[in-house]
Design a protein around this nucleic acid. Structure first.
Length: 943
DNA sequence: CCTCTGCAAAGAGGA
């Protein structure tokens, strides 16, 4: 049975005499909470059948024996503890449990540690930390490694070697070019690496070719071939291994997530269910490198959890080829096998527990945790510099002077906040197995009950999976997303990551391996957290001291006078012209505050042109792909085409693909394309990528900056000498999962600290006078005004609508309707009915349905309304940045406004300012009147 | 409660 729950008490390790001799033990007190967790598969847990509720669960004593006491030494009160296969061992009058020989002890199982992190932690915990801070840099061994891995996967999928090499080298074209590599020299090297793989693969194939029954009984023959020394265990696993009919021997790239051990990762390959790790290097030693074994052992652990009887790990060192081999050095065969015993698996779990414990209190590793010797460490210098600058204790020691205290404090605070974000992401992973399929679907995080139609190979070893969606279910998933395709059970069944190509009644997903597509899940990603870490690292540890003086408030931003020579830039809008001038003159940064409809995008495009005319290289960035594309579109409308759009094919809008940097191709050519572009446009997330981190610009312009966290903004800003932030802090703030200071954008901080560095665009081109009045008064001190009399006076009549054809309550350009509905969860069906009626009334009066948009605060209500009308319905958050002639807003709430979503009135500002000519608010007057802000809104709407 | 991006993983040195 499994025991799981928060630790109430952690005892001291002591040694006792047993009939087996002296042994260590430690006693822990746990309050079991297992009964409440439905996701616990297999084992019944301690609460089951006890009848007690979770709150009243009695504490139990858990005794950890032997080496598990090591984990107890890292355990603290408040951490979650899991002991698998515990045995009942009552202790006085108290319920007690003890570890058995089958047990694993897991600390904080909800904290998901990546296999590669276990690997680096084992090498040195400090290395784990440094990797987290600085990310993986762009260097040749890493890029080559990736290419060889891809080729390996292709070989397993039956792709021709030369075709694969051509293809994969071309795919890495941009990165190779930036590294100054020629295609042929890389291809040659990859070919040499692949030869080792292929030679070894052929040995394995011979063994199975002889045995056409797909079982591969004659492993003995394989053993004779020299490299393998796997015992009978490998055979035993064959019967257990359920790889499907066509893959009795090999599988490539296997995604594994373990809820029990709190480990996730992706194995390079499985051979008869046994993990194979590829290493693009040489190992002249007899045994595999220890950290390589650790990595393979992690996969073995995760596979065993799925019932595969793994006892052997294989490491494939591709540089150990016949060419390099000394005359009789038999140890240089590429494959090194090792047996995976229980002891190694337990070691892996204990190491993983150390990581989870360190992350529990967000502590910074010192290096003393490991036996590693700093003087032989490749990273010693980096390690010492980081320790010195951040004044951290470290085994390697410190060099250099510490950064000012406020910088170190900022670094620590932000680091902690980002780790909180990571935990929230882990909570998303957890839901993959804790929630039932139905709960996931209700949460909009999965499409379930798909009916598989076909699995077809589409070349390059990829597969196209097609399924039918027989319900009108909705989810957060969108075309172009990477998602987890599974046979219905993403946690313990067969699941593959793939990209969604179609998402209608027919669902199409492309994957590396075929799966019976029954279910599609949102796959959480730690990518943004990682990129924010590196952005903060680049800013604090590698950033320009001058810039830091300004951002840490030690100096005011400076402005030169360059614009009087270059301007005026815009002659019919003083504020816009002032914004361009401010941006051109900025020595450090400028801020453009753009309320709704004030021509932000146009101004941005003008700023870009003004800077390029001066000879500056410009980075044009924004939080979303949509905003980046809009900015590029504005540039094109102004006749400027010399823009390079960096981004994924699915991220970049169709009509911008011609400007997109295709990363695949001839290395020199690709690199030159990027290096020579005077304007590069990319999302802030892309700005944190390995390739973009190598690029330098004179100015970075960031749109939607008020929706970005500070580290998110830094990812773009780090790339340039000066920067311009464009945004509106009176609209939606950054969305972060955890409650912390990341909720305030850099834009907002700077505009509050340095109002003079900013220009507010005060004339809006979108809303009629009547519609904009409330927003202007409540959010912009009454300073926002219509740009022209035409804008101010626009009405539905301009669309050919006779207002007399509308019901009386909708004739004013701002109206309010109370449908007397009732909130049910996050929806309000009666209100949804009324919203649909309102929409119909506008359409009946002659408004084009394409000119109408409906906004609701909750996705549930969006879906509810969507079932009743064909016009665009979306959440506030997704409507930001766009507008419609007519907007209908559904407030959902009845009785009171008891939901956090109503607390931030900026969301309302966004909703109300999407409308040009007519705005209808649909809600419960009584509920809205409970808050002064909403009451004022009512008064305005009902005038 | 709202939402964004975007697969993950890849190398190497040496008592």
């Amino acid at each position: 049975m499994n025991v799981r729950g928060p630790l109430l008490e952690v005892g001291e390790v002591r040694e006792v005499s047993t009939r087996y001799g002296e042994r260590d033990l430690v006693e822990l007190t746990v309050r079991p909470d297992g009964g409440a967790r439905e996701g616990e598969r297999s084992e019944p847990s301690t609460r089951t059948g006890s009848g007690a509720t979770r709150e009243h669960a009695d504490p139990v004593t858990v005794t950890l024996w032997g080496k598990w006491t090591h984990t107890a030494e890292h355990a603290e009160e408040g951490m979650e503890l899991l002991v698998t296969d515990a045995e009942r061992d009552d202790y006085g009058d108290r319920e007690g449990y003890t570890t058995s020989s089958e047990s694993y002890v897991v600390l904080e199982p909800d904290f998901l540690v990546d296999v590669t992190d276990v690997r680096s932690w084992v090498q040195c915990p400090r290395m784990y930390y440094l990797n987290k801070l600085s990310g993986i840099p762009l260097n040749y061994p890493v890029v080559k490694g990736t290419v060889v891995h891809e080729v390996f996967g292709d070989l397993l999928r039956g792709v021709n070697l030369e075709e694969s090499i051509d293809d994969r080298v071309a795919e890495a074209g941009l990165e190779l070019g930036l590294l100054g590599m020629e295609r042929e020299e890389v291809a040659d090297e990859v070919r040499r690496n692949a030869a080792a793989i292929q030679g070894w693969l052929n040995q394995g194939t011979l063994a199975t070719d002889d045995d056409t029954s797909a079982g591969g009984e004659n492993a003995a023959e394989r053993d004779e071939s020299g490299s393998a020394d796997a015992g009978d265990g490998a055979n035993a696993s064959l019967s257990e291994w359920d790889g499907g009919p066509d893959e009795s021997e090999w599988r490539s790239e296997y995604t594994l997530i373990s809820p029990t051990f709190g480990i996730k990762g992706r194995a390079d390959a499985l051979r008869r269910g046994q993990p194979v790790e590829l290493k693009t290097g040489k190992n002249t030693k007899r045994d595999p490198r220890f950290q390589d074994k650790i990595q393979a052992a992690c996969y073995a652990l995760l596979l065993r959890e799925r019932g595969v009887d793994v006892d052997t790990g294989t490491l494939l060192y591709t540089k150990n080829t016949a060419l390099d081999r000394g005359e009789e050095s038999g140890d240089l065969s590429p494959a090194k096998e090792f047996s995976v015993g229980k002891g190694l698996l337990e070691f892996v779990v204990r190491q993983r527990n150390e990581i989870a414990a360190a992350e529990f209190d967000v502590s910074v590793p010192t290096g003393y945790e490991a036996d590693a010797t700093c003087e032989y460490c490749f990273e010693q210098d980096t390690c010492m510099v980081v320790s010195g600058r951040l004044d951290q204790e470290s085994k390697a020691g410190q060099i250099g002077t510490a950064l000012p205290e406020e910088e170190r404090e900022y670094f620590d605070r932000t680091y902690r906040a980002l780790e909180e974000e990571r935990r929230e992401t882990h909570a998303e992973y957890r839901k993959l197995w804790e929630q039932t399929a139905e709960e996931r679907a209700a949460d909009d995080r999965a499409l379930i009950d798909l009916v598989p139609v076909s699995e077809e190979p589409i070349g390059d070893g990829r597969w196209r999976l097609t399924a039918r969606k027989e319900t009108d279910a909705v989810s957060k998933l969108r075309e172009g997303d990477v998602a987890l395709a599974s046979d219905g059970d993403p946690a313990s069944g067969h699941a593959e990551l793939g990209r969604i190509r179609k998402l209608g009644d027919e669902v199409v997903v492309e994957t590396d391996e075929p799966v019976e597509l029954h279910r599609l899940d949102v796959y959480p990603s730690e990518l943004s957290v990682s990129r924010m870490h590196t952005a903060v690292h680049d800013f604090v540890l590698k950033g320009d001291p001058d810039r830091k003086d300004v951002l840490f408030g030690r100096r005011d931003p400076a402005f030169a006078d360059r614009s009087s020579a270059g301007g005026p830039y815009i002659d019919n809008n003083d504020a816009q012209n002032a914004a361009v001038e401010r941006a051109v003159d900025a020595e450090d940064f400028a801020l453009v505050h753009g309320p709704p409809g004030t021509g932000k995008t146009y101004t941005i495009a003008r700023i870009v042109r003004a800077l390029v005319e001066r000879g500056d290289r410009v980075l044009l960035s924004a939080f979303t792909n949509r905003a980046v594309d809009n900015a590029v579109e504005a540039l094109r409308e102004q006749g400027f085409e010399d823009v390079l759009r960096v981004g994924t094919e699915t991220g970049v809008r169709g009509d911008m693909q011609d400007l997109r940097l295709v990363t695949r191709g001839e290395p020199n050519d690709r690199a030159a394309k990027l290096n020579s572009a005077p304007v590069v446009a990319a999302t802030t997330s892309s700005c944190g990528s390995r390739t973009m981190r190598e690029q330098e610009f004179d100015v970075a312009i960031v749109d939607e900056a008020s929706q970005l966290t500070e580290p998110g903004t830094l990812a773009a800003v780090n790339r340039a000498d000066r920067f311009v932030l464009v945004g509106d802090h009176e609209q939606l703030p950054p969305v972060v999962r955890a409650e912390n200071h990341l909720r305030e954008s850099l834009f907002q901080r700077l505009i509050e600290d340095h109002p003079d560095a900013g220009v507010m665009l005060d004339r809006q081109y979108r809303m009629s006078q009547r519609i904009q009045a409330f927003s202007s008064r409540e959010f912009y001190d009454g300073k926002l005004r219509p740009a022209t009399p035409e804008v101010a006076g626009q009405t539905l009549a301009d669309l050919g609508v006779d207002t007399a054809d509308l019901p009386p309550e909708l004739r004013d350009s701002v109206s309010f309707v109370d449908p007397n509905g009732t909130r049910e969860g996050n929806a309000n069906p009666v209100e949804a009915d009324r919203v649909a009626e309102v929409v119909d009334a506008y359409v009946a009066a002659g408004v084009d349905p394409d000119d109408i948009g409906v906004i609701a605060p909750f996705r549930a209500q969006v879906a509810e309304i969507g079932r009743r009308t064909d016009v665009t319905v979306d959440t506030v958050d997704r409507f930001q940045g766009s507008s419609e002639e007519v907007i209908v807003v559904s407030f959902v709430a009845t009785g009171d406004l008891s939901s956090p979503i109503f607390e931030d009135t900026r969301r309302v500002n966004v909703a109300l300012t999407r409308a040009k000519k007519a705005l209808c608010l649909v809600g419960d007057a009584e509920a809205l009147a409970t808050e002064p802000f909403y009451e004022r809104m009512l008064e305005w709407a009902r005038r």
